Computed example of a mutant assay.
Amino acid sequence: MIITPKDKIEAELIEIDNFLNTAMSEDGTEAVQRGNELAIYIARSGKLVADAKYHLNEALKDEVFDILKETAKNAKATSKAVNAIIDSICKEERYLVDWSDRINRTATHQLSWCVTVVSKAKEEMRMAGYGNNMKS
C-alpha cells in the first residue's frame, strides 16, 4: 500500500487547485483538452482523499487513546469535550481530507461542464450544416 505523505498531498492539492482556478473559454477543443486533464485530476484527487483519510485515522488512533486515558484519569470532561479536543488535535489532517474532497468534487463538476461545452459545440456544428456539404 502506497500512501502519499501529508506534505506531498498538500503540494499536489495546490497544483490541482491552481488548475481548477484557471478560467476556460467555451471553445469545444479547449473543453476536450481540459476534460482530459480533469479526468486525470479526478482520479488522482480521489486517491488523495483516501490518503488524507488514512493520515487522519492514524492521527486519531494515536491521539485518541492518550486523550481518553488522560480524560478518564481526570474524569471531568464530557464526551463532547473529548471529541472537540480530538478534533482540534487532528485539525491539519481534517483540513487535508476536506480540501482533497473539495478538489475532487470541483474537478468532477468542471468535467461535467466541459462535456456540456463539447455537446454545445457539436450541436452548433450540426445546425450550421458542417459536414453535410462534404458528401458530394
Rank of each mutant, 00 (worst) to 15 (best):
P5C: 02
P5T: 09
K6M: 14
D7A: 12
D7C: 06
I9E: 07
L13A: 02
L13H: 11
I14F: 11
I14M: 03
E15F: 11
E15L: 10
I16L: 11
D17T: 14
F19Y: 11
L20C: 07
N21K: 10
A23F: 08
M24A: 12
M24I: 08
E26I: 05
D27F: 03
G28T: 00
G28P: 00
E30R: 03
E30M: 06
A31Q: 01
V32Q: 14
R34H: 06
R34A: 05
G35H: 01
N36C: 09
E37F: 09
E37Q: 13
L38Y: 01
L38G: 03
A39Y: 11
I40N: 07
I40T: 10
Y41F: 10
A43M: 01
R44K: 07
R44W: 05
S45F: 03
G46H: 01
K47Q: 10
L48Q: 06
A52W: 08
K53Y: 04
K53R: 10
Y54H: 15
H55A: 08
H55C: 07
L56K: 13
L56Q: 14
L56F: 08
E58S: 09
D62W: 15
D62Y: 14
E63Y: 15
E63A: 15
V64N: 15
V64M: 13
F65N: 11
D66P: 05
I67R: 08
L68K: 14
E70W: 15
T71L: 11
A72K: 15
A72F: 14
A72W: 11
A72R: 15
N74P: 01
A75Q: 08
K76V: 04
S79R: 15
S79N: 15
K80T: 05
A81I: 05
A81L: 11
N83W: 13
N83S: 06
N83T: 08
A84Y: 09
I85G: 04
S88V: 03
C90T: 13
E92I: 01
E93A: 06
E93W: 02
R94I: 10
R94K: 12
L96N: 00
V97P: 00
D98P: 07
D98S: 12
D98G: 13
W99V: 12
R102G: 06
R102D: 12
R102L: 05
R102V: 03
T106R: 07
T106S: 09
T106N: 03
T106H: 12
A107T: 05
A107K: 01
T108F: 06
Q110V: 00
L111Q: 02
